[in-house]
Amino acid sequence: MVKRMSNCTSCNCKSSKNLPEDLVKIFEKYTKKRENVIPLLQDVQEKYGYLSKENLISISEYLNVPTSNVYGVATFYNQFRLVPLGKHLIRVCRGTACHVKGSDKILDKIESELNIKAGETTSDELFSLETVACVGACSIAPVITVDEEFYGRLQQKDITALIDKYRKSD
């Protein structure tokens, strides 16, 4: 079945798609202009935690901007996620102070422990891993955050136990 919206103006298609109410509420805030691609992507991601294929297509149809353009923008910016986040979000600070204190080694260790790369989510959807530019806690470098918790002055040997703590809590 071909899914399209009733207000699609780029083609003469019939309505066959009922949008979720949450999405309609977000769309209502924006005029159908090309410059609203990024704000819409941000709002939809905030609501759903990530940008699903269906929602990207809906955004493209609402704004009458080709899907390839919307997808191009969504994959260009690091802030956008095209897969859902894991239950726990690990952020590794790659700022200058942390870098000097060996944050690359911390990242390596977490990547091998979770068997994913930065920007990915584990297959059990328990952990997502990201790098960030600075978390503003340079005095305790190298730093990572897990959800809202900060962990500073880390060494590679601390990582397994730290991750196990979150594994066991679930």
């Binding site: 080709p66 899907t67 997808y71 191009g72 260009f76």
Partner: peptide
Amino acid sequence: VNAIEFTKR
């Protein structure tokens, strides 16, 4: 047609 676009970065 917009079949292709720059993706990623």
